[in-house]
């Protein structure tokens, strides 16, 4: 359906925006390496089914490969900045202080509690959903500490937020047309959207209304 395709495309757009900008400007200003590392973990644990070769469609398989590849490439580019622009890299690392063990640990526990089947694939899948829902937190934490958001960060988070928002009408659509309700995805998806809503709300209040930028 249209919501799902638009959702996937804005997800892809968010990564392309990030990739292109970092590639072109060699700037990592305002980007959280920790959030990006979490996304690599999210994609790798979620798309493990690629290895089973029970592929759903060309679209599905290609997108999965692109997401894994692009997220790894982002890390590579950030690491290249380390040698090219050591000052900016150090500055980024100094501000990227969120402790990700407080996200990975609880997500692993949640995956053990909430899953459809106690198999490696299903546990990893559940883990990836929980982790994706909170993976943006180091990024938001960084924004709240610095008190200002660069154009790159803003565009990136906007595209990601749009992707999450579009998945909600997609689930409603699928519930009515296919009778499909995938509770784990919906719950973690709503949780994730709530985190983004907070960003959008603050962004609207502070930036659009022109009063600087700060997150609670």
């Amino acid at each position: 359906n249209i919501f799902r395709i638009l959702g996937d495309l804005s997800h892809l757009a968010s990564i392309v925006i990030l990739l292109r900008t970092v590639q072109k400007t060699r700037q990592v200003d305002g980007i959280s390496l920790k959030t990006q590392l979490l996304y690599v973990l999210v994609f790798c644990t979620r798309y493990l089914d690629l290895l089973t070769f029970r592929w759903k469609s060309v679209y599905n398989t290609l997108m999965k490969m692109v997401f894994i590849g692009a997220s790894v490439r982002v890390i590579q580019l950030i690491q290249e900045c380390k040698t090219r622009n050591a000052v900016a890299y150090k500055d980024m690392m100094a501000r990227d202080t969120f402790q990700i063990k407080y996200l990975v640990g609880p997500c692993a526990i949640l995956a053990l509690v909430f899953n459809y089947k106690f198999t490696v694939l299903e546990l990893c899948w559940s883990f990836s959903l929980w982790l994706e829902s909170v993976a943006i937190l180091p990024q938001l934490f960084m924004l709240s500490r610095s008190g200002k958001a660069g154009t790159l960060t803003t565009h990136y988070i906007f595209a990601l937020g749009l992707y999450r928002a579009l998945y909600i009408p997609n689930w409603i659509w699928r519930y009515y047309t296919e009778g499909r309700l995938e509770k784990l995805s919906v719950f973690t998806g709503l949780l994730q959207t709530a985190l983004y809503s907070d960003f959008f709300y603050i962004y609207y209040k502070k930036v659009i209304k022109g009063a600087g930028f700060e997150l609670p």
């Binding site: 997800h11 759903k56 459809y116 899948w125 998945y167 995938e182």
Partner: peptide
Amino acid sequence: VDAVTVHDEL
């Protein structure tokens, strides 16, 4: 096929 456990979304 249990529709709920088919993870066809990205």
